[in-house]
Design a protein around this nucleic acid. Structure first.
Lengths: 112, 112
DNA sequence: CCGCATCCAACAGGATACTG
DNA sequence: CAGTATCCTGTTGGATGCGG
């Protein structure tokens, strides 16, 4: 176990886990609260189904997100942050706040 | 001006600018101080010349990094954060600290 | 020393159609 | 509702060699 990969900087570890286009966005949404699959889809309309489910699976494998299935009809699946996921909040918050300020400076429109 | 692209979340703006495998690492290195090109290469041995120069150019174009050329023999080029780049420090710090703790939890070795 | 040019492999990501 | 399966494309990233 451990030591499968070589990192020269702690930042690389973080990038390896939450890098990519969508993971930070998914986590930021889940930071606001538990969400069903369909809710996430609506919150992230630019993401394809494939990417969303794929990234969710990877986040689950890395123990950052927890998936709960309710055996109902119709099916219901909830996603929430794990404790490890919650530990990412400072990163997510910093990214959200910087993005907000940058959007303001460069005149980018953001919803809400 | 502005409004070239559609974002549904402020986090997407940040990912768009400092996403990818190397930009956060480059910025984290420059946060520690001004560095020459060769120094960055040694600090990031896993990066190819092509990627390093390419990412530096993009960071420069986005006004996060400033490039200074000294007309000497041999040539000397310094890279430093711009004011806009410095505004990213909370993000970089959060990523560094989370990576450090995660490495500790999962038993990953980090230099220094 | 600080790059650029070229070629190539791998993977992240997107479009579409289908299923329990 | 919550996914799967398949196919396809663009970007990321690596290797190598050359140039001011």
């Amino acid at each position: 176990m451990g030591a499968q990969k070589r990192y020269n900087c702690a930042v690389e570890v973080t990038v390896d886990l939450i890098g990519g286009k969508w993971k930070p966005v998914i986590l930021a949404q889940l930071k606001k609260g538990v969400h069903r699959y369909g809710e996430l889809r609506r919150l992230m309309p630019a993401t394809s189904e494939k990417m969303l489910i794929q990234q969710l699976r990877e986040l689950e494998a890395d123990n950052l997100v927890e998936r709960t299935v309710f055996d109902t009809v119709p099916p219901q699946v909830e996603y929430r942050l794990t404790e490890e996921g919650w530990s990412l909040v400072p990163v997510l918050t910093a990214m959200f706040e910087w993005g907000t300020k940058r959007a303001d400076r460069v005149d980018i429109e953001l919803p809400g």
